[in-house]
Structure formats: C-alpha cells, structure tokens
Amino acid sequence: MKKVVEAKEIKKVYGLKGTVFPVLHGIDLTVLEGEFAGIMGPSGSGKTTLLNILATIDQPTSGDIKIDGESILNMNEEQLSAFRRDKLGFIFQDYNLLDTLTVKENILLPLAIAKIKVWELEGRVDEIADKFGIRPILEKYPYQISGGQKQRTAASRAIISNPSLILADEPTGALDSKSATDLLESLKSLNKQDKATILMVTHDAFAASYCKRVLFIKDGNIFTELVKENTSRKDFFKKLLDVLNMLGGSESDIICCSKEKYKREF
C-alpha cells in the first residue's frame, strides 16, 4: 500500500546557543493510505510539535519527511503553501475559522484559493455540508454557531480539496461529548467510505479509540504502538487506557474524567 507519510529520524531542538531544549529525539513514522492514525502522549511529549512538522508549518532540526512521495524539506515558502493547499487538510482544536467569512465561505476558501471554477466549487460545498450535516447554517457567521458546528465546518474545510492527508490537532478538545462523538463518527465514516487518510493528535483516549492505530509518544520518543485490528472500540479504549496508565504522569486525572464522561456512550 502507498505510504502517505514517511518520516525518518525526525529531531527537533528548540532554543539557541547555550539553552538547548530537545523536543523530538528522532522519530520514525509511517502512515499508509486510507489509515486513520492517532498520536497520543502526555503534555510536553512533543506530539503537537510532530504534527506541526508534518503539517509543514514547523521545520525539523534534522530528519527526512516525505508526504505523498514528495520531500517537503527542500521546498521554499511558495511551494510549501501550494503543497499545504493541495495535499493537506487541517482541523484544529480552536477551529481556526475566519470570523469575517460565512460558514460556506470558510469551507470553500481552499478551493477559492486554488482558483477552482465557481460551479464546481459550490457543488462541492453542498456535497460536504450534507455529509457533515451543516447545510442549514451555511450562510451563518462563525460567531452565530455552536462549537460543534464550528468544528464540523473546520472539518468540511479540511477535506473539501480532497487532500492526501488530513491532520487533526485535538479536534475534540473544545467540544462537549455529543459534539465530539458526532465529529469522530464523521471522521470515521470519512475514513471508511472516502478512504481519507487521517492523522489525529489527541490526549483523549475516547477520541483515540476511533483510530485504527495509535502511536504513543513520551519525552520525544515513540514509546509504543497499539493497533486496533479486530478488537471492539470499547476494548481498544481499555487497552489505550492501560498504556496511558503505564505512561503515567500528569494525565491520569484527565483520563479518569474522560472515562466517566464517555461511559454511557459505549
């Protein structure tokens, strides 16, 4: 199967001169086409840095990354922008919608920037809006809609250009449980039906349980990897919790809470 992401020996060091602060110690990561992969880890483990590097927003100190077969490290700013526009889709924790644009305009923004014809572009918006159930709010502005609707708008925007890879950074972080479940279900069906490749960063085991494979990062190294295969999501969730317990650290309390929070939904 085709490798969408192929990262080797990624190192990232922050700081200048005397005070050096290593974040990533040399991570190898491969995501195959059609995969729904998750990255978990406690705060400060480097998971967001890794995602930013894969998203071409941040540059690694060393290492090599190929996305969709193209090496992104040798590209200039112009090429990177075009690359992000054509190959990547983003979903962020704080939605990152433009408050000056309507929901519809936010969704079609990547296509407009890519200068896609108007008729084609409007068709795409309708199609995706249906998929995420946000058709009724297309003409509204971000400040007029709920968090869940915002995040579904962001997700719609992420996939409208049929990207090779969808990157999601704590997409459920700011959502209530109902909205979070809706969004995760949507991502799941996106992965299943449209064969979309998704890489999601989260510290929430419930969200991670939707993934087919979850990587654990601790202190800048890959700690372990769990593959769902044929286990049920409930079992996979338990396994994830076990690993997290093993990892220990500050995040156990959050996990407990989320365990309570999501209990009813299995």
């Binding site: 998203a55 927003i57 700013e77 112009e78 922008s81 075009a82 690359f83 992000r84 526009r85 054509d86 990547l88 983003f90 962020f92 990152n96 919608l97 433009l98 408050d99 000056t100 923004l109 990547p110 920037i113 925007r157």
Partner: peptide, 15 residues
C-alpha cells in the same frame, strides 16, 4: 491570527 490561519491552510505569503 487570521493571516496565520490562512497561512496554515496554504495561502502563500505573497498572496
């Protein structure tokens, strides 16, 4: 922040 979002979703500095 708005321009940062745009940059993230692939708008070049030039644009």
């Amino acid at each position: 922040p708005r321009y940062e979002i745009l940059s993230k979703i692939g708008v070049s500095n030039r644009d």
